[in-house]
């Protein structure tokens, strides 16, 4: 069985960080689900007892390998939890998953929903065997319609994923559309795509050109000037440390750990097995106890 792997390791947006829902998030959960204004397009606000039951059930469900994944949205600058977003109803058969988001009242209208869902859907498409992400909301919820529209979702044309409620509006985004519109391998890349591809193109040329492969610093600078690479990038590219260029391109220097793990030896070597037999005969142990006395 495939466990759904959606880690929070790389789930960051410009101003936000996403982390997995944990037991300490009970207060946030109550703030969201017991608040009438936040719940107006979702359902009746929950009572304290209902919040408690719902929170425990949600936490339990997230611990299952194929359960929903709930993430707490945290403001990076003050480490405050401002909402929840999720990927759930992950279907291997239909190759789709549902997403959703709730923000506390004070965090609405700041573009947080767009940022958080952008990072989450990016991660979902990277990590899950799905081709479609869908969302459902009440038609009256114009904020949700605008949000999903801005993210590239469109109304599902007659397609109803399992779990979608009949009266709700269903919007979907498919993997190729998401890829095309994001147009960058990672969200949050600070340099423009043109500049990034310019640098990658230059590096590829150097890598495959016999004339440039072992070129001097001056020769490389000339080529970079000819290819109109920005001065800040030229200098960063020629530094022996990778930090500068990786920072400018918004990528991590070393991403992998290793790709192989060495197996540890199994308990005892086989030779020792016969030695384990005597302890079964209880009387035989007696002489052993006398050993310290010999010292």
């Amino acid at each position: 069985m495939i466990a759904f792997v959606l880690t929070t390791a790389a789930l960051t947006a410009a101003r936000l960080r996403l982390r997995a829902l944990a037991a300490r998030d009970r207060v946030l959960f109550r703030t969201l689900y017991a608040d009438a204004a936040t719940m107006r397009y979702i359902g009746r606000p929950l009572s304290s007892a209902q919040v408690e039951v719902s929170f425990c059930a949600t936490l339990d469900a997230t611990r299952k390998p194929r359960g929903p994944r709930f993430f707490v949205i945290v403001e990076q600058h003050r480490s405050a939890a401002v909402g929840l977003c999720s990927i759930r109803r992950i279907s291997m058969r239909e190759r789709c998953a549902e997403t959703g988001i709730m923000l506390v009242r004070g965090a609405c209208g700041r573009g947080y929903a767009d940022e958080a869902l952008g990072a989450l859907i990016d991660a979902a498409f990277r990590a899950l065997p799905i081709d479609t992400v869908w969302a459902q909301y009440r038609r009256a919820n114009t904020a949700a319609a605008c949000l999903f529209g801005a993210l590239g979702f469109s109304e599902a044309d007659g397609w109803r994923p399992r779990g979608a409620r009949l009266r709700l509006c269903v919007s979907i985004v498919q993997r190729p559309v998401w890829r095309m519109q994001s147009n960058q391998p990672e969200r949050g890349v600070p340099m423009s795509n043109t500049i990034g591809s310019n640098v990658i193109g230059f590096l590829e040329n150097v890598g495959r050109s016999a004339a440039l492969r072992h070129a001097s610093r001056e020769q490389l600078l000339q080529v970079m000037q000819r290819e109109e690479i920005a001065p800040v990038l030229r200098s960063a590219l020629l530094q022996p440390q990778r930090m500068a260029i990786d920072g400018l391109l918004g990528v991590r220097e070393t991403m992998y750990c290793t790709n192989q793990g060495t197996k540890l030896p199994k308990k005892a070597p086989p030779k020792k097995t016969p030695a384990k037999a005597p302890p079964k005969k209880t009387p035989a142990k007696k002489p052993a106890k006398k050993v310290p006395a010999k010292r």
């Binding site: 890829r179 095309m180 990658i200 391109l249 220097e253």
Partner: peptide, 17 residues
């Protein structure tokens, strides 16, 4: 599964998915 972010950017340019 590549060595670094720049190599991943390079690879991403070869295929849309």
């Amino acid at each position: 599964a590549v060595s670094d972010g720049i190599v991943e950017l390079w690879l991403s340019a070869m295929h849309p998915d």
